[in-house]
């Protein structure tokens, strides 16, 4: 019996020792924010990414990677076992996550871009962190020119737009939010430009009063244009009368919600909508 116990004891020690040797050298990134995941993938592919959250779904290759949890809740044991050199986190619910990771002495880098400028400078910073500075600067510079181009292409911000980001209760965005800035830079005139918060609950009567010409839904595809049209009292809104409600089927919400370079694609689609092009 004693021999068996001794054998097991030695075996355990050897095995734990082995697992140390198993660790790879080089950079090992865990990314909990889908936005940062897109940016890092764009800068140097998935080769150094060892873990992501389930929301990191673009590009599709990221879905194959090890999952450490979701945006709101991660598995700390999993993170520790993946032995990351940096964990990239975001804001909102992840403020707390970042402090908790720091308590565990895991190196973190937090990026929560709240505007297009913010996003561009985040790309430069991330580039520096992961050793892809040149590519990051190239991406950032070309983003700046693209956005400049879109801005000069705008005729005016004449079309009034209502953006619905959530439907029960109905919520919209102010111009200070990322989505709000995207709408504004793409040539739309947000009816809720001046909300007290970036993302906020709004009143149905204010939407009807503002009478937007265009409605953009960034809700999941189950929220159809039809579900807006049948709302009591909404039939007088110009966008409803003229059938100008754009859903996830017309414009992928990720293209305008996420602060990533794909926003250029989103802005181009929006610009077409605002310029009444088909």
């Amino acid at each position: 019996m004693k021999k068996i116990v001794l054998f097991l004891f030695v075996a355990v020690i050897i095995l734990t020792g082995c697992s140390k040797f198993k660790q790879q050298t080089g950079n090992r990134y865990i990314i909990t924010s889908p936005e940062i995941a897109e940016i890092i993938y764009l800068l140097q592919g998935a080769r150094n990414i060892v873990g992501v959250t389930i929301e990191c779904d673009y590009p599709a290759e990221l879905k194959e990677l090890e999952k450490v949890g979701n945006f709101g809740k991660v598995d700390f044991e999993k993170i520790i076992s993946l032995d990351p050199t940096i964990v990239f986190t975001s804001g909102l619910e992840q403020e707390l996550l970042t402090t908790e990771l720091e308590k565990l002495q895991i190196p973190t880098a937090q990026f929560y871009p709240k505007s297009i400028d913010d996003m561009i400078s985040s790309i430069r910073e991330i580039g520096k962190l992961i050793g892809a500075e040149k590519r990051a600067n190239f991406v950032a510079d070309s983003l700046e020119t693209e956005i400049e181009k879109i801005a000069t292409n705008n005729v005016d911000n004449s079309h009034t737009v209502y953006v619905e980001i959530y439907n029960t209760p109905i919520m919209s965005v102010s111009d200070r939010s990322f989505v709000g800035e995207v709408i504004q830079k793409a040539g739309g005139n947000n009816i809720f430009a001046e909300l007290p918060r970036d993302y906020s609950r709004v009143k149905a009567e204010d939407v009807i009063n503002a009478n937007p010409e265009i409605i953009i839904l960034t809700c999941p595809p189950e929220v159809t244009a039809e579900s807006i049209k049948i709302r009591k009292g909404w039939e007088v809104i110009s966008a409803v009368k003229n059938d100008r409600i754009y859903t996830a089927l017309d414009i992928n919400p990720d293209l305008i919600i996420r602060a990533t370079p794909r926003v250029i694609e989103g802005m181009k689609i929006l610009q077409k909508i605002f310029k009444d092009e088909k």
Binding site: I170, M171, K203
Partner: peptide, 19 residues
């Protein structure tokens, strides 16, 4: 958002016309 809406009470229910 919706769950909080139900748990905290909300009289701003948006009716569809049929509803």
């Amino acid at each position: 958002g919706n769950i909080i809406n139900v748990l905290m009470g909300n009289l701003g229910h948006i009716f569809s016309r049929k509803e």
